[in-house]
Simulated scan of single mutants.
Amino acid sequence: MSVDWNDLLDTFEFVSLGQPGEHEAVLCRKTGKFLWHSELADDVDEWPDDTEDEEKYLSIPHKKELDLGQPLVFEFARQFLPDEFDEIQGIFAKRGAYARFKDLLQRRKALDRWYDFENKATEAALREWCEINGITIEPAAGPAPEPDRR
């Protein structure tokens, strides 16, 4: 089965918007279409009763299931902000951590580096998840990216 990368990424981001279980999505193994469901709003899509049937549907993971939450933040801090590691751990001991973390990144002029790090880690984790689940990613439409000329 193959999926469009942008559709997969949009669906993954939807699932990861809130806490695990607030938003769900599945990939229909028969049609190759993503179906979305939210506990916080009326159903986005018609939600089948048998989404737990793994032969028919594949559940899209939440970012926490792929270690893209706090473990990723701490890995970033170890690599790029080792002097602030203890402060970042303290930030994540309280509610509202991501807003305070991003404020710290802004002050340290590291926000763009964080977004790049997070995007690369998300792509790698999703591609690995696809490989494990026998999903191929359709080539992206549009012009090819410019080669890196560093």
Rank of each mutant, 00 (worst) to 15 (best):
I132N: 14
A110R: 09
T31G: 04
P82S: 07
L105T: 01
N119Q: 10
A25S: 11
E13F: 13
E84C: 08
F74H: 05
D4F: 01
F34I: 02
G90L: 11
E54Y: 01
D45G: 07
E128M: 09
D4Y: 04
E54Q: 13
A97P: 02
A125C: 10
R78G: 09
G134F: 07
W5S: 05
V15H: 00
P145Y: 07
G32F: 02
Q89C: 15
D10Y: 09
D49R: 09
E65Q: 14
G32R: 02
S2E: 15
K30H: 12
Y98G: 02
A25L: 06
R29L: 15
E128G: 10
A41T: 14
L66C: 04
N6L: 14
D148Y: 14
D50W: 05
D50K: 08
D103P: 00
L9A: 08
P145L: 10
F80H: 15
A97L: 05
A99V: 13
R127Q: 10
P71K: 10
R78D: 12
T11E: 03
W129L: 04
D103K: 13
F101P: 00
K94A: 15
L66I: 05
D67C: 06
Q19N: 13
R149A: 07
T122M: 09
I91A: 00
A41D: 10
Q70T: 12
R107I: 12
P71V: 11
K120E: 14
G142L: 09
W36A: 11
S38H: 03
I91E: 00
L111V: 09
V73T: 07
E131A: 15
P48K: 03
F74I: 05
Q106D: 13
A97Q: 08
D7P: 04
E39G: 02
H23I: 08
E128R: 14
D112S: 12
D43F: 04
Q19Y: 13
S38A: 09
T51P: 02
P48S: 03
K120F: 06
A140R: 14
R108Y: 09
P82G: 03
L58S: 00
A41V: 10
L66M: 08
I135H: 02
F80P: 06
A124W: 01
E52R: 12
M1E: 01
E128Y: 06
Y115G: 04
L17F: 12
P147T: 05
K64G: 12
F117T: 02
R78F: 11
A97N: 10
L17P: 02
Y57P: 00
D67Q: 14
F34H: 00
A121Q: 10
A140Y: 03
E131P: 03
Q70M: 06
D83V: 05
A144D: 11
P147G: 06
E22N: 13
N6Y: 11
P82Q: 02
F76M: 04
F14E: 02
G134K: 09
G69D: 12
R107Y: 11
